[in-house]
Design a protein around this nucleic acid. Structure first.
Lengths: 212, 212
DNA sequence: GTCTATACTGAGATAGAC
DNA sequence: GTCTATCTCAGTATAGAC
């Protein structure tokens, strides 16, 4: 079974550095020293390969997330868990994984950037996310359902930038500083907690907007 | 020169509906009724075609943005323009464009999802964005440079979800409601204003994180 | 069950005739 | 400016060796 793991490891390394679309199966099998058809034998397709690549590492992250949330909820004993606690339970397991397995986190970042996350989320995150969505919903009783829905979208959008390579919108704004993954995630949590708890935007159904 | 415009219009329609990667040049030229080589004659490459497709419509949006910001700054007369005003100047021109030209906004959304925005931003947004970044920076004197930098990243991440098709993290959470583009953008502005003005996260350089 | 060799289809790109 | 023909490389599929 060395072949399967050789493929997975090589693919992980290459996708982390080049992205998924830019990494061809032929490059993977070249560097892994295996045959092209072996990929399709073991995985069926390039997408399935990606899927298994993610699955073998994301599982433990999601288990940690659920465990943290379980602990918070039993501690809260029926009352809503505060937003920042829920967010911490979700994001901090990623910090630990990131320091232990930076390659894998880079892959996830690449996928975010390439827009492949929604479908992958649906597969591997669905049950985890629905737990967290419920917890967040309870913590935010004053936010309308539709506003809450969109704030979730914004959250995952912002998250994708936290794990991706930062974009230098204004060159020279940050001269090649080290961006510690853990501190970025912590900044993200602060940002999101504030966003989630913002006062509702005026709900004016299809009215004209006002000039500033 | 009808050929060039036929290509651009057809490409815009197809990319809006299928995405950039999923739309082949052969499909574009098929529906446009032109020859494959014409694309490379007029644009050079598929990416260049996309580039010109964006350029022909984004210019006016960016001009509106700058005009709005100019007005705010001269009105403020040296004092910082409040965060929410700056954000409105940036996002509201998109609302107007979205109602007048939904196809184009859908293309932008697709590109966000496919991770093609960073490079495009660099080309077409650079000067506009640096103006807005400066205005935001002045409005947020208490936020550290690094925290500000990351909040910018989060902002563009969240923005990308506002224009993309929403992801149904929890199925049935919103039964096929209409998501008015303008109200989503307004929700986004509220969310971002709160995130930007959040208290700074504790700046603890490479310390252990605390268990919750 | 595992893997190799090879072939198929469709993509973007290009050279050169008109 | 436009079109035909062709090139290279991608993901995929299958037949058959071990």
């Amino acid at each position: 079974m060395a072949t399967k793991d050789k493929i997975l490891d090589t693919a992980e390394r290459l996708i982390a550095n080049q992205g998924f679309a830019a990494t061809s199966l032929r490059q993977i099998i070249g560097e892994a020293g295996v045959n092209l058809a072996a990929v399709h034998y073991h995985f069926g397709s390039k997408e399935e390969l990606l899927d298994q690549l993610i699955l073998r590492k994301i599982t433990s992250v999601n288990e940690q997330r659920i465990a943290r949330l379980d602990a918070l909820e039993s501690e809260a004993d029926g009352r809503p868990v505060p937003v920042d606690r829920v967010l911490a339970a979700f994001f901090e397991p990623m910090i630990e994984t990131g320091s232990r397995n930076p390659q894998f986190v880079k892959v996830m970042a690449r996928l975010q950037g390439e827009g492949l996350i929604p479908s992958i989320m649906q597969k591997h995150f669905r049950s985890t996310i629905s737990r967290f969505v419920r917890a967040l919903r309870l913590a935010l009783p004053d936010v309308s359902q539709e506003e809450f829905f969109w704030r979730l979208q914004f959250m995952f959008g912002a998250m994708s930038r936290a794990v991706s390579d930062p974009v230098d919108f204004v060159p020279g704004m940050l001269k090649d500083e080290r961006h510690e993954f853990s501190s970025v995630i912590r900044r993200l949590m602060v940002f999101l907690a504030a966003g989630f708890q913002a006062p509702a935007s005026m709900e004016m159904p299809q009215e004209q907007e006002v000039q500033a």
